[in-house]
Write a protein that binds this DNA or RNA. Structure first.
Length: 474
RNA sequence: GGCACGGUAGCCAAGUGGUAAGGCCGGGCUCUGCAAAAGCCCUAUGCGUCGGUUCGAUUCCGACCCGUGCCUCCA
């Protein structure tokens, strides 16, 4: 099965393949670890995970690198506010990020390099650019990339320099322009300033720290080679971040950098842009606090096409819950065993059987919305097929698990046992009394007790040989 | 101002030159004391507006309206 994906560079769908015929090498721009990542960040990371899983599910081996930005203005400033060293500060948010990723069932990258731990590689790359005349030391002591010396600048974003409005949204600080030859030039090495405190590293151009863009060029080439297969990041990174990465990397090596680029679009929340002032920068913690699971969020995040803006609503999380429960039930019907979530065997050619159309949708530009539609169309068909021919169970199950691997759904039991622990004793007693009444067929009493429980905020549901209690949904 | 993207049912969201996947919600039914669960069925003569091409357009073209993103360190 071919894997097609629209390439930002060309604007066309192109085949995803490992140039070396072995391993698909790809790099994803990771988080800046200065606070909890929000669900918008996780849309990007989850789509990238879907990309990797899709590749693996159809038999492509991968090498996935995702960086951690642990030194920049924000990390320095916030660590100082928190009264922590930069390392202690970023370590704590890195752990949080990793925990969140695990909750969302994101496959761990093969390498997760941080900027601070790759300073020499960055200095070396800057030196190459200086040697080639593509970079210069500015009046403020910082080193800048000379865009006028790189004619291909703008090929990814399609922005021509003439069309750029200076500081279009007012985000730029005046000091950022100081010392540059040209407004468009960007910092490779930032000279140390008082407010940076102890956060400084020695370099041929004096003490300071790397600029933001250089870390991705240096680290991706360090782990994946000077030319590699795929590079991805949020759509806002197309310009300037990825444009700058291309300039730095291709300027230094003279070789094509990443061949294939893709950019998930931003998430919107309840029809609005996400922002601090609107209070809708939800984190995984917020999702849990409302009683939803990370897996339900994952479903929502991949349920729309990645290049389409996705509108997150609490309603969509409810929809995701129901949809996942249906998948879970179908899976349980096929086999009571917990699904295998490991990577499909790399050597064997994956068989998807009746689920082939689902996989074909994913492999066609990661069309997860269509894939899910096909999945839910096929499930009843598979069920009736099993009734007439139970011998197909094994292959239906194997294919289904492969497809679930691609989606990244664990389909584990949805209720966590810890949630059931703190039922008050009086509630339990009432429920028990109701059960006794029911056993003695005293329907009036049983119903009265149900009402009583309900007024105390508890719902009782009878099962085959017992009952379950759960708090009334808010 | 430049570049890009989008407007499909109550909500989310695919898709196609021949007449609209799927999910959620809602409604009906079946089944169990009831409830829940489960199963079955129903729910857009319509795809932003107006023109054009065509035997036929939601799909192609043009104009317009509305919304969104980016335009130098935001995923």
């Amino acid at each position: 099965m071919d894997f097609l994906l629209q390439n930002t560079l060309s604007g066309h769908k192109e085949k995803v393949f490992p140039a070396d015929g072995q391993t698909l090498r790809f790099y994803c721009c990771g988080p800046t670890v200065y606070g909890p990542a929000h669900i918008g960040n996780f849309r990007t990371f989850t789509i990238q995970d879907l990309f990797r899983r899709t590749a693996e599910a159809i038999g492509i081996r991968t090498c996935h690198v995702r960086n951690l930005t642990d030194v920049d203005d924000k990390t320095i400033r916030e660590s100082q506010k928190a009264g922590l060293s930069l390392k202690a500060f970023t370590d704590q948010w890195t752990r949080r990020f990793e925990d969140d990723c695990k909750s969302l069932n994101l496959l761990e990258p093969h390498h997760s390099p941080s900027a601070v731990s790759h300073i020499p590689q960055q200095i070396e790359l800057i030196q190459r650019l200086v040697d080639k005349g593509l970079a210069y030391k500015g009046q403020d002591g910082s080193v800048y990339f000379r865009i006028s010396a790189f004619p291909a600048y703008g090929k990814l974003s399609g922005l021509c320099r003439e069309g750029l409005v200076c500081n279009a949204d007012g985000r730029l600080h005046s000091e950022d322009e100081y010392g540059k030859e040209d407004y468009s030039d960007f910092a490779l090495w930032k000279a140390w300033k008082d407010e940076d405190g102890p956060n400084r590293w020695e370099s041929p151009w004096g003490p300071g720290r790397p600029g933001w863009h250089i870390e991705c060029s240096a680290m991706s080439m360090h782990y994946l080679g000077e030319s590699y297969d795929v590079h991805s990041g949020g759509v806002d990174l197309v310009f300037p971040h990825h444009e700058n990465e291309i300039a730095q990397s291709e300027g230094a090596t003279g070789k094509p950098f990443a061949r294939h680029w893709f950019h998930p679009t931003h998430l919107r929340v309840e029809g609005q842009k996400m922002s601090k002032s609107l209070g809708n920068l939800y984190t995984l913690e917020d999702i849990r606090a409302r009683g939803f699971s990370p897996e339900e969020l994952r479903y929502v995040l991949i349920s729309g096409h990645f290049r389409q803006p996705l509108n997150f609503t609490w309603d969509s999380l409810h929809a995701a819950r129901s949809a996942l429960q249906r998948l879970h039930k179908f899976r349980s019907k096929l086999s009571p065993a917990t699904p295998v979530v490991g990577q499909p065997a790399g050597s064997s050619i994956p068989e998807f059987g009746v689920w082939e159309p689902v996989m074909a949708s994913l492999a066609d530009d990661l069309n997860a919305a269509q894939a899910l539609g096909r999945l839910f169309t096929l499930i009843p068909q598979a069920e009736s097929a099993l009734v007439s021919d139970p011998s197909g169970r094994e292959s239906i199950l194997a294919g289904f698990d492969r497809v679930m691997y691609a989606f990244g759904f664990r389909l584990e039991a949805e209720t966590a046992p810890e949630g059931q622990l703190d039922i008050p004793a009086d509630i339990l007693a009432l429920a028990e009394a109701r059960w006794q009444a029911k056993q003695s067929r005293d329907w009036a009493k049983a119903d009265a007790l149900r009402l009583d429980l309900s007024s105390r905020g508890w719902v009782v549901k009878d099962t085959k040989d017992g009952y379950s209690l759960s708090p009334v949904a808010v």
